[in-house]
Simulated assay, not measured.
Amino acid sequence: MSRDTRAAVRRLSDAVHDSALDAWRGTGDPSTLSELSRAHERVSAAYWRGAYEELSKLVSQVLLEGRARHAHATGHERERLGSLLASTYQFASSAALLLGQRDLSLSALTSARSMAEDSGDEVLSALLASTLSWIHLRSARVPRAVAVAEQAALRIEPCFSRADRPQLLAYGRLMISAAVAASRQGDAVSADDHLSQAHAAAARLGGDEAMYGTHFGPTAASTEAVGIAVALGNHGRALQLASRTQLPPAMPKLARNRYKLDVALAQCSAGMHDRAGDTLIEVGLDAPEWVRHQALPGVIGQRIAKVSTARVRSISEAIGVPLVA
């Protein structure tokens, strides 16, 4: 972790805990709802770029000033602030988890759930369950990760003929979470079943959409299918799916690079070590700080090292990450 990223983690931690303790001590009035909404949009953009220093500063503003305003707000403004704060806590939780700070991630998600319940936003509450499932997955609590996603999906399961778009987005995202977690425990039947539901929700949406900074649609369903095939050991199928997958220019950087790591792992398993190395270099150059906190580059590096240690050294030098001991 670089010095700037360590500072960002500390700023995230201060923002999450100080806001929960109502510790804003700014001068004058906190930012307006409109100003906080614009800051939240920048939070989302910074997260998906992997710009953690910028993200931590924006999260601090939204959480500290937003909680100060929320304490005295009423009616519609209070509901809107509650949703905005919950989503910002969710971004803080996800960023903390990516940076290896599990306890901070859980603290942020606890505050997010409280704010979402206060706002009465059922879609946002469902999306928070997707983040909780991811925390359990990263903590090697795979059965719990599956259960959390499945239970939340049941609570918001849509009637496809008349479901509104936010409901479809949340349900599809939860089905992806359940499918990914099921694949990690080798349950191909459940993974395929959940993935088919995600594809159905994506088809009903008809295009990629984002809500509260969560992205879902045909692109997410297709790219996640590749990762699920890799996790189940179906590397040939993963490469076949990847050959038919088109990445739109608007796809968030982190989602694009996470998908490429799955492709690189499938390429390695198929003996395509040079192509896997090229893919890994693409990811490392595109998201240098993010890639430091991912496990797959090391796995890919170890496999390439069995063929050529010189190649692994050149990849490590190119992306600035040691891939083998």
Results as ranks from 00 to 15, higher is better:
residue 130 S to T: 12
residue 111 S to M: 07
residue 155 R to N: 15
residue 109 L to R: 02
residue 132 L to H: 10
residue 149 A to C: 09
residue 91 F to Q: 10
residue 140 A to W: 01
residue 95 A to T: 12
residue 114 S to M: 05
residue 139 S to V: 00
residue 96 A to P: 15
residue 155 R to M: 13
residue 165 R to Y: 10
residue 167 Q to G: 11
residue 102 R to I: 12
residue 144 R to F: 09
residue 118 D to V: 11
residue 148 V to W: 04
residue 104 L to H: 08
residue 137 L to I: 05
residue 107 S to C: 10
residue 110 T to A: 03
residue 98 L to Y: 13
residue 135 I to Q: 02
residue 128 L to F: 07
residue 162 R to L: 02
residue 114 S to P: 02
residue 142 V to G: 02
residue 117 E to R: 13
residue 124 L to I: 11
residue 152 A to W: 14
residue 131 T to W: 00
residue 104 L to R: 00
residue 163 A to C: 04
residue 101 Q to P: 13
residue 167 Q to E: 09
residue 131 T to A: 02
residue 111 S to Y: 07
residue 113 R to L: 01
residue 150 E to A: 10
residue 147 A to E: 15
residue 164 D to S: 10
residue 123 V to K: 00
residue 161 S to I: 09
residue 151 Q to N: 14
residue 99 L to D: 10
residue 146 V to W: 01
residue 144 R to W: 06
residue 137 L to D: 06
residue 128 L to G: 12
residue 122 E to F: 04
residue 102 R to F: 11
residue 164 D to E: 15
residue 145 A to W: 00
residue 98 L to V: 14
residue 122 E to C: 01
residue 100 G to H: 03
residue 149 A to P: 15
residue 134 W to G: 02
residue 117 E to A: 06
residue 165 R to G: 08
residue 108 A to R: 00
residue 143 P to F: 09
residue 111 S to R: 03
residue 110 T to Y: 03
residue 134 W to H: 12
residue 136 H to R: 11
residue 157 E to D: 14
residue 103 D to M: 01
residue 131 T to P: 07
residue 154 L to V: 14
residue 145 A to E: 11
residue 106 L to F: 02
residue 151 Q to P: 10
residue 89 Y to Q: 08
residue 157 E to V: 05
residue 125 S to Q: 14
residue 167 Q to M: 01
residue 163 A to T: 14
residue 91 F to I: 06
residue 96 A to H: 03
residue 95 A to L: 03
residue 91 F to E: 11
residue 90 Q to A: 13
residue 100 G to V: 02
residue 147 A to I: 11
residue 129 A to E: 15
residue 91 F to W: 11
residue 143 P to A: 10
residue 98 L to C: 05
residue 156 I to K: 01
residue 103 D to K: 01
residue 155 R to S: 15
residue 91 F to M: 08
residue 168 L to C: 10
residue 89 Y to N: 11
residue 169 L to C: 04
residue 139 S to A: 15
residue 143 P to K: 01
residue 134 W to N: 06
residue 152 A to H: 03
residue 109 L to M: 08
residue 134 W to Y: 12
residue 113 R to C: 04
residue 169 L to D: 13
residue 129 A to R: 08
residue 89 Y to F: 12
residue 109 L to Q: 04
residue 159 C to R: 12
residue 98 L to T: 13
residue 107 S to H: 13
residue 110 T to V: 08
residue 155 R to Y: 03
residue 127 L to I: 09
residue 121 D to F: 01
residue 143 P to L: 04
residue 130 S to R: 08
residue 108 A to I: 09
residue 93 S to P: 13
residue 126 A to C: 05
residue 153 A to H: 07
residue 108 A to N: 11
residue 145 A to K: 00
residue 136 H to D: 14
